[in-house]
């Protein structure tokens, strides 16, 4: 993509506000339990669970389901240690068993999946919607009070993706200026917009900011956070960008990005054909 030419134009900003969370279809890979080194813990868990009576097991499982649902409303990853501290307490040794049961109920009744985050966020969980509501008009079925914030988030994710999955902060802020968003200015909808982008979205796991120290001066780079990777897909973001172009563009016309989409879907053969 030619440098400096960004996809989203000011007059289309309004459309973006209307596009809501495109929830995950992306369910590849990640499972909530980790196989390696777990057998010791698992033995303990089985023992701990066996010592609980059925009523207690039910109660703890249901409390955990409720806790996960409530905490997820804040959109902040839920830590295993908090689950133990606030819900499981004296039966926290049985964590893997109770957690498994709670996960099953969340899926069966609420249609959400519990996903464990990776790397330095290991031991934290997010809930991801796994209902397939299709590509279009999520607005109709998924009305969201935080409409505008979601719109801004989609803009950020789009910019990062279209720029090759990473964007330097100076470039990011320069672009956002075209939307009337400046890091040191109070925004009438978002308030402290710098805080929203660099703290709230980061804490929620939508955006990751990586400090590159091998340049002088060091720069901060914006990337997709782990929650973003679970709640949306590259294909959806590219489709979103095309929609903003009033469907004048086909996703495959963005050659580089289209290859990226195919690669992210594990379709390496198709990538070679495109090239």
């Amino acid at each position: 993509m030619p440098g400096g030419q960004y996809l989203i134009q000011l007059d289309l900003l309004f459309d973006i506000w209307l596009i809501l969370i495109i929830r995950a279809k992306d369910r590849d890979g990640t499972t909530s339990s980790q196989a390696a080194g777990a057998s010791q813990t698992m033995n303990q868990a089985v023992k701990a669970a066996a010592s609980m009576d059925r009523g207690e097991m039910e109660r703890k499982t249901n409390d955990l389901v409720q806790y996960l649902l409530i905490m997820d409303q804040k959109k902040i990853p839920i830590k295993k240690q908090d689950i133990n501290k606030h819900v499981l307490k004296d039966v926290s040794k049985a964590f893997p068993i109770i957690f498994e049961k709670a996960t099953e109920r969340l899926s069966k009744i609420f249609g959400v999946e519990v996903v464990e985050l990776q790397d330095k966020l290991k031991g934290s969980y997010i809930l991801v919607n796994k209902l397939d509501v299709g590509e279009h008009n999520p607005a109709e079925i998924w009305p969201d009070e935080e409409n505008a914030k979601t719109g801004l988030l989609m803009v950020l994710l789009s910019l990062i993706f279209m720029n090759g999955n990473v964007m330097e902060d100076t470039q990011m802020w320069h672009t956002l200026k075209k939307f009337g968003i400046e890091q040191d200015h109070h925004h009438e909808v978002f308030g402290d917009v710098k805080k929203l982008i660099t703290q709230e979205f980061v804490r929620q796991g939508y955006i990751e900011i990586v400090r590159q120290t091998n340049t002088d001066p060091p720069v901060n780079e914006f990337k997709w956070g782990q929650r973003a990777k679970h709640e949306t897909t590259k294909r959806k973001v590219l489709t979103f960008v095309c929609q903003i172009y009033n469907n004048d563009m086909e996703p495959r016309q963005w050659t580089l990005q289209w290859q990226d989409v195919l690669r992210s879907e594990g379709r390496q053969d198709d990538v070679e054909q495109v090239i």
Binding site: K108, G111, V112, P143
Partner: peptide, 26 residues
């Protein structure tokens, strides 16, 4: 629960409260 139930429930979780007309259309 079917997926229809789950979608209905999720909308309630995200909105909190709906009026009678919204419930029908949901």
């Amino acid at each position: 629960m079917t997926d229809s139930h789950r979608l209905f429930l999720q909308a309630f979780m995200s909105r909190g409260i709906l009026d009678a007309k919204e419930v029908k259309s949901l």
